[in-house]
Design a protein around this nucleic acid. Sequence first.
DNA 1: CGGTGCGGGTTAC
DNA 2: GTAACCCGCACCG
Length: 493
Amino acid sequence: MSKGTSESFDEADCVCSYGMKLTWDINDPKLPQDIKQFDQFQEWTDGYVRYIYSSDDKNAQRHLSGWAMRNTNNHNCQILKKSCLGVVVCNRNCTLPDGSKLQLRPAICDKARQKQQKKACPNCNSALELIPCRGHSGYPVTNFWRQDSKAIFFQAKGVHDHPRPESKSETEARRSAVKRRITSPHFSQKKRLMESEAGRYHDSGGHFTGFHHLPSMEGPERFNIISESNFPLPAQHYPSFQNTEPYKPAYEPVSTPVDTVSPLPKVTNPRIYMPRPPCGYEFSVPGYIGSSSYPTLYKDSGNTQPESERVHLNGSQHNMSPLNVHDRNFDNSSKHHGWKPIFGKTGYGDRNEYGQIQPNANHHYYNGEYPCRFSGTGSPTAPTLQTVITTTTKVSYQALKPSVVKYGDNMYDAKTLQNCNHLIESTPGTTYPEIKLQEDCGVIKSALAYQQDPIPTKSEREEGLDSYRYGTYTANNFTDRVGQSYRYENGEY
DNA sequence: CGGTGCGGGTTAC
DNA sequence: GTAACCCGCACCG
């Protein structure tokens, strides 16, 4: 499929992200100019994907990502490069009372990250550990942002080999909640108590009401808890649904007409309303839904990488975590090991973050774990985020106010788009060299076993998919998490 | 305090 | 030359 043809396929259009349909590379001297439509913002991109966002998209303007990405100096002021910091977990991989795992968002700031790692797990009191991202040939996954006229081009390289951390919005929400709490006198008292018992953290109720405890420990950060295992496949949920969820936390449910910008009528939560395009998910395999986001298949003329389909099932995320975590080898006698740690456990100090890993050692990671994938994240909605691109790169960052109109399309696309897969990287080397099918499968299974969640669809998927991919991932995770965080917060209040 | 971007500099390939 | 990083600085919320 050359892009030329793309236009002819309506369906195709619906299904694939616009950015992926076009052939371009972030480094191209000239990027596509006549962008006819933009992609809906993707919070959790994973894999070698490309999207083209409207320069009006607040999230794109902020170069946001659900993953903890830190700025990397690539000595190119035209292109902003960011690399993934991974995720902070309990080195014992303890399971919270509610069955979830701790998956904190690594602090972006080096200093803050070091501090963060010195903190103890709120649940078991053992050390926290940073699982570095090595999804791009042993190096962290990288995201590139470049603004060109009215579009913001996004390109990601690498497949995250670790669980998702708490999203930025979740972190922020949690933080603010904690603050408030702390402020209240009532709270402080409590806090003291808790401090003494810091490690305990179990709830009094069964459900991990945990937030109270939060404060006690050190900071909000530690509390990102993700309940993963509990949810099997959400495949059933429509992506749109999911989409909305993620963002909610982030931006208060306020439903401001955010989108004032956009012409669309109900914009508050577009996804919800989104009518499912004819082509949308339906035609995709059920499982797909969850996964839809990023599969990539590059169909462009030259490279077709057949194998590149990815599947995402949900749930995988946590699957991963365990795996990785275990790797970490602490004493946790993890149930799984097989994948030996590449990084030393010790490393807390500073090094963790960029564990330089020799590429070789690691195939392991490319196994089925791919944590994340969920369909649609994006949500443009963030009313709150209204910032304008201020200092961004020197590139001509002037947000031209483009056509709002496009939004309509976008939303649409976004949802649907997620399903598509393109294998991107036209670049030869980039494809996932280290993938092994069998292994993947194995991994997946083990992962599943881990979770115990039966994921029906998964099997279907796997068969279909060839090579690559990975694991399952519950779309829900996200949702769940969100839900949880909410819970915590609310609970406190 | 921490997120984010910039940019000089280093190192390894 | 490229890519991955380190480090400090500045701005901002």
